[in-house]
Design a protein around this nucleic acid. Sequence first.
RNA 1: GCGCCCGUAGCUCAGCUGGAUAGAGCGUCUGACUUCGGAUCAGAAGGCCGGGGGUUCGAGUCCUCCCGGGCGUACCA
Length: 544
Amino acid sequence: MQDYLKEQIARALKKVAPDLETPEITIEKPRSTEHGDAATNVALTLANVLKENPRSIAQKIADQIDLSTGHIRGVEVAGPGFINFRFAGNWLTDQLVEAHRTGREFGKGRMLEHKKIQVEFVSANPTGPLTVGHGRNAVLGDTIARVLEWAGADVQREYYFNNAGRQMRVLAESVRARYLQAIGQDVVFPEGGYEGAYITEIAERVLEKHGDSLTGEEHLPVFRQAAEESIFEDIRQTLARMNISMDSFFNENTLYEDGSIDKVIATLRDKDLVFEQDGATWFKTTAFGKDKDTVLIKSTGEPTYRLPDIAYHINKLERGFDLALDIFGADHIATYPDVVAAVQACGFDSDRIDVIVYQFVTIVKDGKPFKMSTRKANFVTLDELMDEVGADVTRFFFLMRAPGTHLEFDLNEAKQAGEKNPVFYLQYAHARIQSIMKKVRNHYDFTGKAPDFSLLAHDAETTLIKRILEFPDVILLTAGQREPHKLIQYLNELATAFHKFYHDCRILGEDEQLALARTELLTVTATVMANGLGILGISVPDRM
RNA sequence: GCGCCCGUAGCUCAGCUGGAUAGAGCGUCUGACUUCGGAUCAGAAGGCCGGGGGUUCGAGUCCUCCCGGGCGUACCA
């Protein structure tokens, strides 16, 4: 329809101003329905060039629009010089028939067809349970992956982790200390160790399984491995509970084993971007405009996290992804330019790497900001949150707001959200439709009959139809921007249009033809709602 | 100090990438079918879009300078 309009406008423009080169014509959907179904601002943009009043240009163009094809019902000039179009009713019903026929697949796009995309998210090291802080990352990553799939992409979900660094050593020492305490030894708990209760539980399980003989330093790996396995199992379960399942887990260690780390250093050294100083190996980031150079390998011989990060991203590109998406918290953003610069220097196309940065979640508890620390064990786990409000509300809460804005998560409010939560508004619409359907089936027999959507002329009906037809565009917008809250906003509008329809239009008691058309309108509505909630990873109840 | 993000209704946030009278939810106030689920619907109140300057037909949106908050700016991840 957009293309059709553009063509019409371009043709009209030729008659109005034959000498003018056809400009870019943009079509937009007016905010208010009073302004029709589509509008263009060409007259405004041309006012300067043509040295003429925008309204009079608009009027001349409008006069030249061909209405005889039947797609357009009305053209009018409004405001400072907008040209508004109204679609003919048959165009809407044609589209609705198509949507109805497509059913469960309605909304799937082909924008990203044949694109291999990797979304890397969560990527928390196995040092403790996932917290509310990780929640936003996890839910954003998974939902973006889902919407990319709906836009046609072939998506892989990957979890990147490191089980060999300093953090993990401290973790193992913490477990060991708890173990020694459990068998009655008087040991000092390591400075900066992990204090959570789960550490003690892991220590107790080691004691049960291996007895009390693991007192020596040399047994540290046993504690490390026990902790890793146990914590990873918890993380996996938490993710599953949130409706998230990873396609692969990538261990940072493989980058050392397969030599990619050394290769990165060697390549950068060839380009004269690496040098030694004070016993450390540096990356010359000042060459890319940064204030300081960056350490890649510490004087202790231990690499900083940037080095494997670089190797990891090269690895992703070598695996053939058209796009590698990272979901990063605001605190990680500083490394991104380094990684891009290094990847580029190594001869790879860094345009294939993109980062979604989300701002931090501020936990508010009892009206005060709550500072979390995994090490200090004062945190709220995702499991605890889901115990309180359920997985659906948890996902919804993290998706409601644009990733780039700070998200305030009021625990008290979320916990008592119960019936008032906005997610129920969407689920209720779906459940209500199912309930209507059940009643309808008892009153009418529609078998073998096709609906005539042209009977749907009520305001509430056309509004609902227009909303439904927006769905495929919303998918593409959400996928393109990678901002799931846009889908939520849309589903809210869809639900509102449905509830309005429910109040204004009835099915039971209406003549069979109209009842059939309305019933099938609701079928499509329910499908779109189900598809949308599915992308958000939220359940779609038939009853509530 | 420098870099990135943010500042919109009492609160939490949208605002389709520069368009028409700036929207929604919660909260407050007033109303609604004796038949399909009232977890709903209709309406009211509530705003110098942090502030100043600039760009143009047109700015919440772009440029610039202030103010205020968050995160970076580690041989921590």
